[in-house]
Simulated assay, not measured.
Amino acid sequence: MRRRCALKHGICREFLAEFLGTFVLVLFGCGSVAQSVLSRSQLGEPLTVHIGFSVGLMMGVYVSGGVSGGHVNPAVSLAMVILGKLKIWKFPIYVLAQFLGAFAGAATVFGLYYDAFMDFTSGILSVTGINATGHIFASYPARHLSVLGGFIDQVVGTGMLVLCILAIIDGGNIGAPKGIEPLAIGLIIMAIGVSMGLNCGYPLNPARDLGPRLFTAVAGWGWEVFSTAGYWWWIPVAGPMVGAVVAAALYFLLVEMHHKQADPQKPTEEEEEDDDEDDEDEDSSLKDKYEMIIMN
C-alpha cells in the first residue's frame, strides 16, 4: 500500500514538474513573439524571439529538471523511452502534462496582452492578413515551403535538438557540468533559431505548437488555425516525433554503444588497493587476538 502511494505521489510530482516547465517555456517564448508583433517590431525583433525561446527552454528545464528530467517536449520524452531512460507507461502522462502546460502558457500570454491584442486587431482575431496574430502562438509555413519541405525541416531541426541533448546528458561523453545542462540546452535552441528558423519558425515540439494552437481555436481565432496552409498543423506534430526517433537511433548506434566499458575481469587499481588494505586489517586483527591469547 505504501509503495503504491509513493508511486502515485512520484508520478504526480513529475506530472506537475513537466506541466510547469512547459508553461514557463511557452510563456517566455510566445510572450516574446507577442511583444514583437503587437508593438509592430518597436519592442522586439527576430533576435529577441530567439532569446525568448532559448531562455524559456532553459528556465523550463531548470524548473522541472530535478523532478522529471525537464523534457518539456513529447519528442524528447519519446527519445528517452526508446533509449530506456523513461518508462513507457510514463510517456502518455508526460505528454499530457506538456500539452496542458503549453495550453496554459498560451492562455496566460493572451490574458497578459489582451488589451494589446484588441488594440492591434480591432477585436478581429485572424490567422492571415495584415493584422494576423495566430502566428504568435503556433507555427505557420513561409510561402516558399512545401509540405515535404516542412516535414523534412521539422525532422532535421528536432533531430539536431535531441541529438545534442543526448550528448549533453551522456555521462560517457564529455557532457556538461552538473547544473549547467539547462544552459547548454538553451543554447541549442538559440543555434537552431538563428540557422533553421526561416521556413516555419522552428517549433520542434508537438506540445509547444499544438497546445497553443488549440487555445487559439477556442479563444476566437476559430478552426482556421488548423485548415490554413493546406492543413499544415500536423507537420510540427509528426515531424518532431520522427526526428526524435531518428536522432535517438543515430546517437545510440554511432556514439553511446561505443563507450568503453570497464573490464569486470580486471580489478582497477583502487579495488586492488582496497583489497590490500582489507588484507592488512585482517592480519592486524588476527595478530592482536594471538597476542591477547598469549598474555592470558
Rank of each mutant, 00 (worst) to 15 (best):
L7P: 02
K8T: 13
C12V: 07
C12M: 11
L25D: 12
F28A: 08
Q35L: 04
V37L: 03
Q42L: 13
G44S: 09
L47T: 15
T48P: 14
G52Y: 07
F53L: 05
S54W: 10
L57T: 11
L57K: 05
L57R: 09
S64I: 10
S64C: 01
P74I: 10
A75T: 15
A79V: 11
V81G: 03
I93Q: 07
I93T: 09
Y94P: 03
L96P: 02
F99H: 12
F103M: 09
A107W: 03
L112C: 15
D115R: 08
A116N: 13
F120V: 01
L125I: 11
V127I: 15
V127R: 06
I130D: 15
N131I: 07
G134Y: 08
H135W: 08
A142P: 01
V147K: 07
I152M: 03
D153T: 08
G157E: 13
T158N: 02
G159I: 04
G159V: 00
L163W: 07
G171N: 14
I174G: 02
K178I: 09
P182V: 06
P182N: 00
P182D: 10
L187F: 02
I188N: 12
C200G: 04
Y202K: 00
N205D: 15
P206Y: 04
G211C: 01
P212D: 08
P212W: 03
R213W: 09
A217Y: 06
G220M: 11
F226N: 04
F226R: 07
S227L: 00
A229W: 00
V242P: 05
V242A: 09
A249P: 00
Y251G: 09
V255Y: 04
V255W: 10
H259C: 08
P264D: 06
K266W: 01
T268H: 03
E273H: 00
E277G: 01
E282F: 10
S284T: 11
K287G: 04
K287D: 15
D288E: 12
